[in-house]
Design a binder for these strands. Structure first.
Length: 708
DNA sequence: CGCAAGTACCTTTTT
DNA sequence: GGTACTTGCG
């Protein structure tokens, strides 16, 4: 029995070519993941390669998990010590082990986007740069772009004032992070590359260990990532990259589509295998998608074919408004359900997160369960970030961003003025805020340029004492218990639960606690924080739970569904108007459209609305120019009746966090809601009564305030 | 210093 | 329609 028996000739060739550089160009639905899994299984099972000598890099943690599962299935056992993960996760691991030689703290924290933004703002403030002239966002993306290309501040061009500002903020930002013992996402890659370049013995160690290197979604790698791969593979040269230039959609994040060209240049002996047979979609869907992508100019033509049936035409549905668009989707989903299509096989995809709102409301109203991916990401919620900031401080008190975040949460008399004073002192002494706090205790304090009042000093010392005490406790406790202690001792629990939507926020904190409790005991705080810092929302997408998936086109990459609805197929939305002036970006929009369409197995619906609300104003978008490339014969168009069908459902719609009153139980707050056919089940926490589950249509509930 | 009310600016996509 | 930041008062 051959492990590769089930593969077609091209797939088989891709899996069998295990020595030397290999480029696999894999069209959508071409069984790419299968090939990767088979290739690794073949290496281990037939080639006798130890799993620990293989590194496989994926785009998301979720893809890594899926790959591991398939692999275990193929091998009939665990693939064990195989190194498998995202670039960021793998680099973080390497830096934890090797970072000391380049001066990294073993307990470095990883700053996410939010933290990075805080650090940029702090840097701008320290430099006295007007944040109205230079938006922190813009500066951050310039810094991030530079880092993704392995550029240091000194490497940046200096053609004028703006460049000069960018360079100086970048420098300042680096100092701030260093002082905080923090690395941002880009650092994980950049530092690993620098480590490899500057420490030949370390590089040699990894080159020797990893005989085989495999990189998925290669079209979405940036310069730093490619450099990392090249360094690692320089010795063994067994590097396999898998990608599809037509699915490159992360140019805005400095992904460089040219890496594919560079690969063929850097490894001129590379074999190239094209996987062109599509096993996923109907002929019709594939043709529509192919027509869209064929219009890109900067593209090598690539034929895709399928033996699947032609299937139904693609439906183009035109709605009056965003709300009606959502209703059309929901109505069609209900119809499909009667035909036996499970909800988990339906996905609604959109260009921008803001579009999810109307869809969510329609699902709620018509009682369709849904899984919303990524709108307000769990780990981005304020209360979750607050608790994580506390945990980080226990591990690494130098972390300035986290410290400033919680120093006055709950309010403990350390206000803005004091915080500014602390930051100024930290800068003057080139020290962390934590060090500055320690000095407050020293006698020289009164002689400081601007001494602190007795009241403030006392508040600071109390905060510092509390921190020390908690750090002590952290040595002995498991993460979940530590969270309990922390929430109690800092007063954060009482503080957050007292807020208007406090119980919901508290639930989120409890969910974070249960995430921690789900890790094996004995796993340290560092590991926990690292995992938590590197997860994305799609990672937790549950393929089993029943419900429609609401997801952005970007996040949908790598997924597939029986039925796909693409909403907002309009000029201005898809393609997004911000891309209009830039031809490269317009081509990326087109690829995004292509990625979305090729997620569908059996049915594809394209929707557009004549009017759409954008930032309060109503705009009328013309149909997407991309539709012009689709032959009419492949489409059925229907414009829905202009009058909207009356909403069949209760007039009062409740959402989490709504304040309500009940005839019997009095005042309460909605904790969660669950759509039930034709109704809504709400869980309400009543003051002094407790938590009750109620059916909206029956319960004498009414919403407080905001009249409607 | 803390809090409430007001204002500017937003919205592309995320490891 | 929402948030993040600023202003002004107690």
């Amino acid at each position: 029995m051959d492990i590769l028996d089930s593969l077609n000739p091209a797939q088989r060739q891709a899996a069998e070519t295990t020595s030397g550089p290999l480029l696999i160009l894999a069209g959508p639905g071409s069984g790419k993941t299968r090939v990767i899994a088979h290739r690794i299984a073949y290496l281990i099972g037939v080639g006798g390669v130890y799993p620990r000598r293989i590194m496989a890099v994926t785009f998301t943690n979720r893809a890594a998990g899926e790959l591991r599962q398939r692999l275990d299935g193929l091998l009939g056992r665990s693939a064990g010590e195989l190194t498998l993960g995202t670039f960021h996760a793998i680099c973080a691991r390497i830096l934890r082990v090797e970072g000391e030689v380049i001066g990294l703290d073993r307990n470095f924290v990883i700053y996410d986007d939010d933290d990075q933004l805080s650090a940029v703002k702090q840097s701008l403030a320290e430099l006295g740069v007007d944040s109205h002239r230079f938006s922190p966002r813009g500066v951050l993306s310039a810094i991030s772009a530079a880092k993704s290309q392995l550029l240091a501040p000194a490497d940046l061009p200096s053609r004028g004032y703006a460049d000069e500002v960018a360079r100086r903020v970048y420098e300042r930002y680096e100092v701030l992070l260093a002082r905080s013992h923090a690395l941002d996402f880009d650092d994980l890659l950049l530092r690993t590359v620098k480590l490899f370049q500057g420490q030949p013995p370390v590089l040699a160690k990894y080159q020797t260990r990893y005989l085989h290197l495999l990189i998925d979604e290669f079209q979405d790698t940036n310069i730093a990532q490619y450099q990392f791969a090249k360094l690692l593979a320089a010795k063994g040269r067994n590097i396999c990259v898998v990608g599809d230039p037509d699915q490159s959609i992360y140019g805005w994040r400095s992904a460089d589509i040219r890496n594919i060209l560079s690969f063929e240049h850097d490894f001129p002996d590379a074999r190239v295998v094209v996987l062109g047979q599509n096993y996923r979609s109907t002929k019709t869907i594939l043709e529509v998608a192919s027509r869209i992508i064929a219009a890109n100019r900067q593209r090598k033509p690539k034929e895709l074919w399928t033996e699947n049936p032609a299937g139904a035409p693609v439906s183009l549905l035109e709605a009056e408004s965003e709300e009606e668009e959502a209703r059309l989707v929901v109505a069609e989903i209900e119809r499909l359900q009667k035909e036996g299509v499970p909800l988990r096989e339906c996905a609604v995809m959109y260009r921008t997160n803001a579009q999810s709102r109307a869809l969510e409301e329609a699902c709620l109203r018509f009682g369709i369960p849904y899984k919303l991916i990524g709108a307000v990401r769990f780990y981005q919620r304020r209360e979750v970030k607050d608790v994580i900031a506390y945990l980080r401080l226990l591990q690494n008190p130098s972390d300035t961003v986290s410290l400033m975040r919680v120093i006055n949460l709950p309010p403990r008399g350390i206000g803005n003025r004091t915080q500014e004073e602390l930051a100024a002192r930290a800068q003057a002494q080139s020290a962390s805020i934590y060090d500055v706090l320690h000095k407050v205790r020293e006698p020289g304090e009164q002689a400081a340029p601007s001494p602190l009042s007795l009241r403030v000093t006392r508040a600071l010392l109390e905060f510092l004492g509390m921190l020390e005490e908690l750090r002590q406790a952290a040595q002995e406790k498991e993460v979940p218990e530590m969270m309990d202690t922390l929430l109690e001792r800092t007063g954060y629990e009482r503080f957050i639960r007292a807020e208007e939507d406090g119980e919901e926020r508290w639930d989120n904190i409890q969910e974070l606690r249960s995430v921690a409790a789900g890790y094996p005991p004995g796993q340290g705080l560092t590991d926990f924080l690292e995992k938590v810092g590197l997860v994305s929302d799609v990672d937790n997408l549950d393929g089993v739970a029943e419900g429609v998936t609401l997801i952005t086109l970007h996040q949908a990459k790598g997924l597939e569904f029986d039925v796909v609805f693409m909403v907002g197929v309009e000029d201005g939305v898809l393609p997004h108007f911000r891309s209009f002036p830039n031809p490269d970006q317009m081509e990326e929009e087109r690829r995004l459209c292509y990625v979305g369409m090729t997620r569908a197995r059996h049915r594809l619906y394209l929707l557009r609305a004549y009017h759409r609300n954008l930032a309060g104003m109503s705009v009328a978008n013309p149909p997407s120019r991309f539709l012009g490339d689709v032959p009419r014969r492949l489409l059925t168009t229907s414009t829905s009746a202009t009058e909207a069908p009356p909403p069949p459902l209760p007039l009062v719609q409740l959402r989490e966090g709504d304040a309500v009153t009940h005839k019997v139980f009095g005042q309460g707050v909605v904790v969660s809601t669950l759509p039930i056919r034709g109704d809504q089940q709400v869980t309400v926490a009543f003051k002094g009564v407790g938590v009750k589950k109620l059916l909206l249509s029956l319960a004498p509930l009414s919403r407080l305030d905001e009249g409607g």
